[in-house]
Every structure is written in structure tokens, then in C-alpha cells.
């Protein structure tokens, strides 16, 4: 697991049914591109988050492929329609095989 990886998510606690909400996600990650060289001229191996997904009650909301040119601590913001109370599940996939997960419940007003 890459060092100091910490996911953060911001989701409203409640919403009226059928309303679109804004979801913000941020994960601390160095997103090493694989293009850079260290002081001795050796290539620093690529180490990035390569995929991010968000599901709501088992249904996929977004599925994003991330590329090496994305900068450190990737921030993703998107909208989602919430038809019913439930739980958002967020998953980040690291190049090294690690998977970071976070979930947030949301209620209907």
C-alpha cells in the first residue's frame, strides 16, 4: 500500500427523493506518473490510483479510469440522483493492488 493514503468523501446527510446532489471525493495519493527519474537517473516506478467507482445501493453511479497525468491527491466531484434512502459506496483501486473503500449513508427528507 502506498504511504499515507486517506480517502475523504462529502455527501449530504439527507435529500428529497429524486433530487440531484453533489458528491465530492478526495484521496491523498502521490500519483507517481512513472515518467520521472530519481537522483541517480533510475526511473521511479508508476504508482497511481487507476480506477474509481461509486455505487448506490449496489447500482453503479460512476466508474472512472484515472491516467498517469492526473495530479497528486486526485479530487473528483460529480452529481447523483437519489431515488431512495441508502448507502453510497466509494472504491479506489491502487496500481499496487490495494483497494481503499469508504461509504456514506443518506436519508430521504
Amino acid at each position: 500500500m502506498a504511504e499515507d493514503v486517506k480517502p475523504r468523501v462529502k455527501v449530504p446527510k439527507s435529500v428529497s427523493a429524486g433530487e440531484a446532489i453533489t458528491i465530492k471525493t478526495l484521496i491523498s495519493h502521490k500519483m507517481e506518473s512513472g515518467q520521472r527519474k530519481d537522483d541517480d537517473g533510475n526511473l521511479i516506478p508508476r504508482s497511481i490510483i487507476n480506477r474509481f467507482t461509486c455505487d448506490f445501493n449496489g447500482e453503479n453511479v460512476v466508474d472512472v479510469t484515472l491516467e498517469p497525468a492526473i495530479s497528486t491527491n486526485p479530487y473528483l466531484e460529480f452529481e447523483a440522483l437519489v431515488p431512495e434512502a441508502g448507502e453510497f459506496k466509494f472504491t479506489w483501486y491502487d496500481d499496487d493492488g490495494s483497494v481503499y473503500e469508504e461509504s456514506k449513508k443518506i436519508a430521504i427528507e
Binding site: K6, R8, K10, K24, L26, S28, N73, Y75
Partner: peptide, 8 residues
Amino acid sequence: FDNPGMIF
């Protein structure tokens, strides 16, 4: 939330 410094 928007402040990346808060992660640290």
C-alpha cells in the same frame, strides 16, 4: 473538505 491540507 476542499482544503487539501486538511487531509494531512
